[in-house]
């Protein structure tokens, strides 16, 4: 039948289109990354050739050696970034999931629980530049300027909305009978949280941790304002290769690669609840 035939043709057309789109999008996404990684391994004299040399004549690790030279501070920046990310993640996930559990189970008067939850939500949406300056001055007054603590505190507050809302949606989904059952079994809130609720939401907790780590690791605005030198993080270090005298392509590529590669690996694990995390629980997979 003719209809049958056209239908099959349409199907073939759709599939071809689909495959073409997928290949094209993969190319568009991966080529810049590949270019970055290749550049980080490229000898310095091959950067400004015309036409550009895509594959370097030989691979060299000199840019990596250059940025991790013990006489330079890059190692410090790396340590700063690691410390800030790890501590931020631990604190944010801990106090965020506790708060989420409380908000999920606690009935406060005047719908206060919803209002507090909403306040966390708003933090996600207002311009951080508004609080950056006063936060800078606050840290200056507290003599915390250019310390890891200043960045950590700010990062915890920035990542809390994600943790709170991600966990809130998971806690809300757990049947309340589990809580009640544990309550009758003799558990107080803390025991319920640790022995019953957390083990049941471990994957979500992990997602929250990875998401928090990504956000903290990548954050630029606040870190750049309160941590200009001693507590400088990697994203700032990258931007510092852009100087008035021009751009140091090699080291900048190497540094960018250092920032990007661990994140890419982590992102593979965060897939599961990434959407729910990024949309603060509003969209569920």
């Amino acid at each position: 039948m003719l209809d049958e035939k056209t239908n099959r043709l349409v199907d073939i057309g759709r599939n071809t289109l689909r495959i073409a789109v997928i290949i094209l999008s993969l190319v568009v996404v991966s080529v810049p990354f590949a270019y970055l990684f290749l550049n980080s391994l490229k000898p310095p004299n091959e950067f400004l050739t015309v036409p550009p040399l895509i594959i370097p004549s030989h691979f060299t690790l000199e840019h990596y050696q250059n940025i991790f030279d013990p006489t330079k501070d890059t190692v410090n920046y790396l340590i700063n970034s690691l410390v800030i990310t790890v501590v931020t993640t631990i604190i944010a996930v801990m106090i965020g999931s506790l708060a989420a559990y409380s908000l999920s189970r606690l009935k406060l008067p005047f719908r206060l629980s919803s209002i507090i939850a909403f306040a966390f939500l708003l933090v996600r949406f207002y311009p951080k530049i508004t609080t950056t300056l006063p936060y800078f001055i606050l840290m200056k007054d507290l003599h915390l300027l250019d310390t890891q603590a200043a960045v950590i505190i700010a990062h915890v507050s920035l990542t809390l909305p994600f943790v709170v809302w991600l966990m809130l949606t998971f806690f809300d989904e757990l049947p309340k009978e589990l809580d009640q059952s544990a309550m009758l079994d003799g558990c107080g809130p803390w025991q319920r949280f640790v022995q019953v609720i957390l083990p049941l939401t471990t994957p979500a907790l992990l997602t929250a941790a990875i998401l928090t780590a990504l956000l903290s690791w990548n954050e630029f605005l606040i870190a750049s304002s309160v941590a200009p030198s001693n507590a400088k993080t990697l994203p700032l270090a990258v931007s510092s290769f852009i100087t008035d005298k021009g751009v140091q392509w090699g080291p900048m590529s190497a540094m960018s690669s250092v920032i990007v590669i661990p994140v890419m690996l982590f992102a593979l694990f965060a897939q599961r609840y990434l959407v729910r995390g990024l949309t603060l629980g509003a969209v569920k997979e």
Partner: peptide
């Protein structure tokens, strides 16, 4: 693979 651009640091995206 397609979500990589959004998970890496925007600063890195800029340099890239």
């Amino acid at each position: 693979i397609l979500i990589m651009p959004m998970v890496v640091a925007p600063v890195a995206v800029g340099t890239l």
